[in-house]
Design a binder for these strands. Structure first.
Lengths: 343, 343
DNA sequence: ATGAAAGCGCTAACAC
DNA sequence: GTGTTAGCGCTTTCAT
């Protein structure tokens, strides 16, 4: 065991409470400079670290935030986790990671019930059961939803989902495409509707018709993306461009395109929402709309800390404009001999 | 705050210690069935959860294990994390995730110094500084190295790196290739040498010459894989097959091959170490050697728990045979009109 | 400016 | 079989 406060106090020749004041509290506490010095020196010599159990027991808080995501090893979450981690660290909190599939399970129950975490950032996944979420909300730790919302729950941060889908759609429109499909997420997932509405809005703005069969809502995984493209290619009237609601699904779309002999971008332009290193390594490299994931994480932490302090929190949308990253999976429409002036 | 032990005791009409005995200890403690019943009922009614700070303070342990990896969102780690998590949960431990880039930093120091974790599973990365690792080992939490070793340190689990590289190499040899290159990891990384030796052993067994320029040691990222292939393709004598030490690097190799006009597998066969969903989505889909990542995680936890109990632990290698997963990035050598009988 | 002491929730001797 | 009690390390009134 490392040195305790009483070790430090003994070495500095002061009382435990004096040592505590100097070592833990805001520098506001007035104490004779010489005493402060002795205490700080003793602490340094002994390599003193406050025992967190003692602290947590006394203060009834753990200084830990839990970030719960559907898939820890999804590269799309990389920036999100970095944002959360940095914001947490700056506020002297630790970030604990969990999977949303565990939400109904024992592990998350332990985290909260045993007082191991002070608050929770929750990103639900395709498989998260609503009743588990409601149970979670019934416990005593405040929850902030990340890129998802729960009716009647105060505290969420969302991405500019509609705006991002619109950026992607406009990119294809500007390349001269009019037959534009959407390979979207499951209808049950919060972001799906938003992204679809952004797509519809951009199409409407351009006065281009949306055809029902060109919308698929199969999910955000690569395999589901493949299925989406297969379904589109079974159609008599096929699109020349497709907006894919998620990068991983787009990777599947590309793989399936190759498998069934669809040339990208010559025959089909593909643009995806989200960006990550994997997008640069596909064949062809994927044109993407980058999402403000880092800000999403930071803002989530700020909201959670507000809630912890008792401040009223609302539902905020990150409003930085999603950025188009043009790579090689999109090209001017082949069935037109002109393109818009923008391109 | 939720119910405490004394709430439960009061409601059951027993002493706190009776409640503690019944609720926390092995069922061995003898107590009148009726009393046990009353206590358990009271606990259930009150939704009692042991406060972990009180428990940790008393027992001087936290029941938390930290798993530290270079990159949380690397899909290659998915199975590893699952293995660690499951084994930890089964032993009533919680898994806390950290990044190895933080090893020298404040965060990991807090985890250990403040007694927040009982032990550590550490997978070092390209950027982990040896002096930071040594400092970590100097602290009071036991450490088990995951697929890496530290000289003189008891406790590590490693993958069958050499065996996997040999499996990959033999696959190419059996397809008739003799001009086989290795796109490997950084020389400073533990696994690099092992994988290289497996490659060399397989080549030697087949009495096929290894040419120096065909070995690159640039690293395990996609970008480093791309650079590896570029370097190989600058050669006058080019290989017809390449073993890539890491799946992510192989994804880069494929991307670069396409970029510079190398046909895979017709002109170049590519086989990668490790497997993940990303390997099924490349063009062409990657032939891989699957590694026992799940077992790696489980075994790491078991070793760590042994060490926690004071048992002597050694350095174990997971010995399940790495499994070849043939997809479409490898094909018979084009410069031979015969193949071995095996294929 | 500094110290004494209580108590956060829990477990483990020890007494009965 | 059950209760009493001390104490883990810390913060925080309250005295001095």
């Amino acid at each position: 065991m490392s040195a305790t406060l009483s070790d430090v106090a003994a070495r500095a020749g002061v009382s435990i409470s004096a040592a505590s004041r100097v070592l833990s509290r805001a520098p506001s506490t007035r104490v004779r400079p010489e005493t402060r010095d002795r205490i700080e020196t003793a602490a340094r010599d002994l390599g003193y670290r406050p025992n967190f159990a003692g602290r947590a027991l006394k203060l009834a808080r753990s200084d830990v935030l839990a970030m719960i995501v559907p898939d820890l090893t999804n590269p799309l979450n990389s920036e999100l986790l970095r944002g959360v981690d940095e914001a947490a660290t700056q506020n002297d909190y630790l970030m604990l990671l969990g999977r949303s599939e565990d939400v109904g399970g024992a592990m998350i129950g332990r985290l909260i019930g045993e007082g191991r975490v002070d608050g929770i950032l929750l990103q639900t996944g395709d498989d998260t059961r609503p009743e588990d979420v409601r149970e979670l909300l019934g416990q005593r730790a405040p929850v902030i939803f990340i890129n998802s919302v729960e009716a009647g729950h105060a505290g969420s941060v969302t991405l500019p989902n509609a705006a991002a889908a619109a950026v992607a759609t406009r990119h294809l429109l500007q390349l001269g495409h009019t037959k534009i499909a959407l390979v979207g997420g499951l209808p049950s997932v919060f972001t799906s509707a938003d992204r679809e509405s952004g797509y519809r809005a951009a199409m409407a703005d351009a006065e281009v018709a949306v055809r029902g069969p060109w919308l698929t809502r199969l999910g955000y995984t690569a395999e589901q993306g493949r299925r989406g493209l297969r379904r589109l290619w079974r159609l008599k009237r096929r699109p020349t461009g497709v907006v894919v609601g998620n990068l991983n699904a787009a990777i599947g779309v590309l793989a399936e395109a190759r498998a069934i002999g669809v040339a990208v971008p010559d025959e089909l332009s593909v643009v995806a929402l989200h960006d990550a290193w994997t997008a640069e390594q596909t064949a062809p490299a994927l044109t993407c709309v980058r999402m403000p994931m880092y800000d999403l994480g930071r803002t989530g932490v700020e909201l959670l800390l507000d809630k912890l302090r008792g401040t009223d929190v609302g539902n905020v949308m990150i409003n930085s404009e999603p950025e188009l990253v043009v790579r090689h999976s999109t090209a001017p429409a082949a069935d037109r001999d002109f393109v818009t002036s923008k391109e």
